[in-house]
Computed example of a mutant assay.
Amino acid sequence: MRADDRPATRRVLVTGAASGLGLALTRLLVERGDEVLATDTATERPAPLPTGARYHPLDVRDDDGWAAALAEADGHWGGLDVLVNNAGVAAGGRIDVETMQEWTRLVDVNLLGVVRGCRAVTPAFKAQGSGHLVNVASLAGLVHAPGMSAYNAVKAGVVALSETLAFELAPHGIDVTVACPSFFRTGLGSSFAGADTGLAETGRRLVDGSRRGADEVAATVLRGVDARRHLVLTDRDGRIAWRAKRLAHPVYAAAMRRAGRRLAR
């Protein structure tokens, strides 16, 4: 869908909407005139949400919660046009330090939360012959630095899921976009936790010290959605890293080996 063909008002559900990229996306969507159902884990409406957005509590790990959120959208707007699977948590850790509990948490939220969202809305999207799935992954889903095995694996899973669904659902008029931002300033840094405390602290510093903010990333994501782009790389650093991996793999591999040696010190 080209930007000039975009419906004047779209019905959009955003997960993880109370902070960071989810909040920035929610604000931009409301400013554009879209109807937005903002969801997050808080029982009460989070204060930062714009007044133009509706709010519904949702834990993306809960199938019943998804059904209730979709019932809310259906009751007020008669359905949805766009689902933004944004909710996620952060983690970093070496394979022999990060615990299986941390792996399970990341898989449940960052991967299966997206799977549940896609499964929940696809029947209605098929029935109406249109819809757009927007899955927020990460550059970590494409470029796999050492010390981030669990996070890299689940974000790569979101990329693979999105590519699969792009081909699977296109005959039904459903678009799929996967966004892969690199580090940017967001509340995600506060969710870093786990046994490998040194790497968690490094992750927080990279997030908090980034030159990019959530508003900038959100604007780039929405431009990609309007253009019906499948893959959205939101910043120059990410584009360089992705192209290096694809087109200059020895250079990329050497950089990753250097990172591994630094991690081993």
Rank of each mutant, 00 (worst) to 15 (best):
L58V: 03
R228C: 03
F184A: 03
M148K: 14
A124V: 00
R2S: 14
A18T: 13
W77P: 01
C118L: 12
R94Y: 14
L29K: 02
G79N: 09
L142E: 06
V251W: 08
R205L: 07
G260Y: 05
A127D: 07
R2V: 10
V143F: 05
W77E: 11
V176F: 12
H76D: 08
L139M: 10
T122Y: 10
A200N: 10
G173I: 09
R54S: 09
L58G: 00
T104I: 12
G129Y: 10
R261D: 03
T41M: 13
E216I: 02
R212W: 05
D237N: 11
T39P: 04
G22I: 06
G141F: 12
T202N: 04
C118N: 11
G79H: 12
W242C: 01
R6T: 15
T15S: 15
I174P: 02
R6D: 10
S190E: 12
W242A: 04
I95G: 14
T51G: 07
G75F: 15
R116H: 08
V159I: 15
A87W: 13
A248G: 04
L23H: 05
P171F: 13
A254D: 05
D74W: 08
L23G: 05
A153T: 15
M100T: 11
D175W: 09
F167W: 13
P171G: 06
E168W: 12
V12W: 10
R223V: 00
A156E: 07
L169Y: 03
S162R: 14
A127R: 15
G189R: 00
R61N: 00
L161D: 01
E44Q: 13
E216G: 03
M148Q: 14
A47L: 14
A17V: 08
G117H: 09
A38K: 02
L37R: 01
A264I: 01
R265K: 09
D64R: 13
N152R: 09
T122H: 11
L165A: 07
F184K: 06
D64L: 11
F125H: 01
S182E: 06
W77A: 04
I95K: 15
V60Q: 02
A38R: 02
A166S: 13
L29W: 05
R27W: 07
L106C: 09
G113E: 02
T122G: 05
R246V: 02
P123T: 05
G88P: 09
D215E: 14
A38H: 02
R185I: 09
D235L: 11
V114R: 08
V207C: 08
V60T: 07
V178P: 00
S190D: 14
V12G: 11
L139W: 10
G33C: 09
A214P: 04
N86F: 08
G75P: 08
A248I: 08
G33A: 11
S149E: 14
P7D: 14
T220V: 12
A200L: 05
F183H: 05
